[in-house]
């Protein structure tokens, strides 16, 4: 295969991957953020303490998260068909990708939000703030650097999932690697696909880390979360503080 043959294939595959991952990330954030916050709020000692709700949400999230993606994808086929009218193509892949990513992101959100210093929540309560104020003014903005890191992790995981979706006709880079690299022994194209994937993942990871660090640099110093993150930042500790 020559480069001029590969180029349009790769271009299309790249766009397909980004399209699937982009939409499913968006849906995962929209669905996972409230779910993760709810997990914290309904927990024992939380602002909306509700042990039953917490257990139910926690169980659903756990099961959905530990389900191998390829099985989830197959299991959701009829559901996907109801929503998109098909089970093939990039639109159809978004459904299982998003559903798989929502609990994944929700758990990461839960961890990030839990790290917000409870003193800040109390301060806002002492000012007369309600639960919604606490969520909007404290929990989300104070954990934003961690939330961005979590979203980055989710995007990278979704790229991995999308390659699996590619094997059942979703298109994208995974599809190229399987069809050309595995089935037709086009080793060259496969290696290029691997390289492209590596570049895409690196760029996303870099952008996510950069955004999280930028947000974090101005903050820190008033709770457990920033301190923990400073430790992780290692040599940048001096600058961040």
């Amino acid at each position: 295969m020559t480069w001029s043959e590969m180029q349009p294939l790769l271009e299309q595959a790249c766009w397909d991957t980004l399209y699937m991952v982009g939409w499913s990330t968006l849906i995962a954030v929209v669905g996972g953020l409230p779910l993760g916050i709810l997990l914290v709020l309904t927990d024992r000692g939380g602002l909306l303490q509700n042990v039953v709700a917490n257990k139910v949400i926690g169980q659903v999230v756990n099961i959905a998260r530990s389900m191998p993606f390829i099985i989830l994808m197959v299991a959701l086929m009829s559901f996907t068909r109801t929503i998109t009218g098909t089970t093939i193509g990039r639109e159809a892949a978004i459904v299982p990708l998003a559903i798989g990513a929502i609990p994944f992101f929700a758990r990461l959100v839960e961890t990030a939000v839990r790290e917000v210093d409870h003193g800040l929540v109390e301060a806002v309560q002492a000012m007369g703030g309600n639960t919604w104020t606490v969520v909007r003014r404290v929990l989300v903005p104070e954990s934003l650097p961690s939330l961005i890191s979590s979203a980055t992790t989710t995007v990278v995981a979704l790229i991995g999932y999308s390659a699996m979706a590619g094997t059942v006709g979703a298109g994208g880079l995974g599809d190229i690697a399987i069809r050309y690299g595995y089935q037709r022994f086009e080793t060259g194209l496969m290696w290029i696909t691997v390289a492209v994937l590596a570049v895409v993942i690196s760029v996303i990871q870099f952008a996510g880390d950069y955004a999280a660090r930028r947000l974090h640099r101005r903050g820190g110093g008033s709770g457990a979360a920033p301190r923990l993150r400073l430790l992780k930042a290692g040599p940048k500790l001096g600058k961040a503080a």
Binding site: D117, L120, A123, V138, P141, E142, L144, R218, S222, P226
Partner: peptide
């Protein structure tokens, strides 16, 4: 408060 409890993001 003893530990000030200021929002670091603001």
């Amino acid at each position: 408060f003893q530990h000030f409890n200021l929002l670091s993001s603001r």
